[in-house]
């Protein structure tokens, strides 16, 4: 845990200025959590909602936060769970069980006003969206966020070996999808 995080938690636990401690937390983590969430839910408005819900959960849970994990790891976990639950709820509310989450997200990607990538980037995103949930998470964190396996393992609570296998399987699938869509020159 970094010194800053310890300072923030101390501020919280002392009860002196919880709002100030929370503001520090938001200021430090909101942007990276936003991008983590955004890659899961795709749509900006949804990412904004999920991010705010994440911080509300963090506010309510931080007093019981067990220091055996890092604050950063714990917040990533909260954000991941919030994003995945949000997708499940949204799919159920909008489509019942008739559509796969990947199909719903592909449609969102097509209509996303805040997607600034080119066609090739769009194809890559679509290929990633076809991955099973766990593989997609691992791919996003490793490929897009350049996170170390050890850190991802801590967040997702899985062994590093399992993660490596998951990532390689995801890469193969993405490459295969891109080859099929004929947008990658192998």
């Amino acid at each position: 845990m970094t010194t800053d995080d310890q300072h923030i938690i101390q501020l919280f636990l002392s009860g002196e200025d919880e709002q100030k401690a929370f503001r520090l937390l938001v200021s430090k983590y909101s942007e990276r959590l936003y991008w983590h969430i955004r890659k899961i839910v795709i749509c900006h408005e949804d990412a904004d909602d999920v991010l705010q819900n994440t911080f509300i959960k963090v506010w309510r849970g931080i007093r019981e936060f067990r220091r055996e994990s890092r604050l950063y790891t714990w917040m990533y976990r909260v954000a991941t769970n919030e994003a995945l639950n949000f997708l499940q709820e949204k799919r159920r509310a909008v489509h019942g069980y008739s559509e796969e989450t990947s199909g719903m997200l592909e449609n969102q990607l097509e209509g996303d006003a805040y997607f600034c990538g080119d066609d090739i980037q769009r194809e890559l995103q679509k290929a990633v969206l076809k991955l099973p949930e766990r593989q997609r998470l691992v791919f996003n964190m490793k490929y897009f966020d350049d996170m170390k396996y050890e850190k991802i393992a801590e967040i997702l609570d899985v062994a590093v070996g399992t993660l490596k296998a998951t990532y390689h399987a995801a890469v193969k699938k993405v490459e295969e999808s891109l080859r099929l869509s004929d947008t990658i020159i192998m």
Binding site: F22, S27, S30, Q52, F55, C116, Q121, L124
Partner: peptide
């Protein structure tokens, strides 16, 4: 990262989260 956000989004994020809280 092919995604973007509305202009000024991150500047007002902290305040909006505090208001929501």
């Amino acid at each position: 990262n092919p995604f973007s956000v509305p202009e000024g989004y991150f500047d007002s994020l902290e305040d909006r989260i505090m208001i929501r809280l």
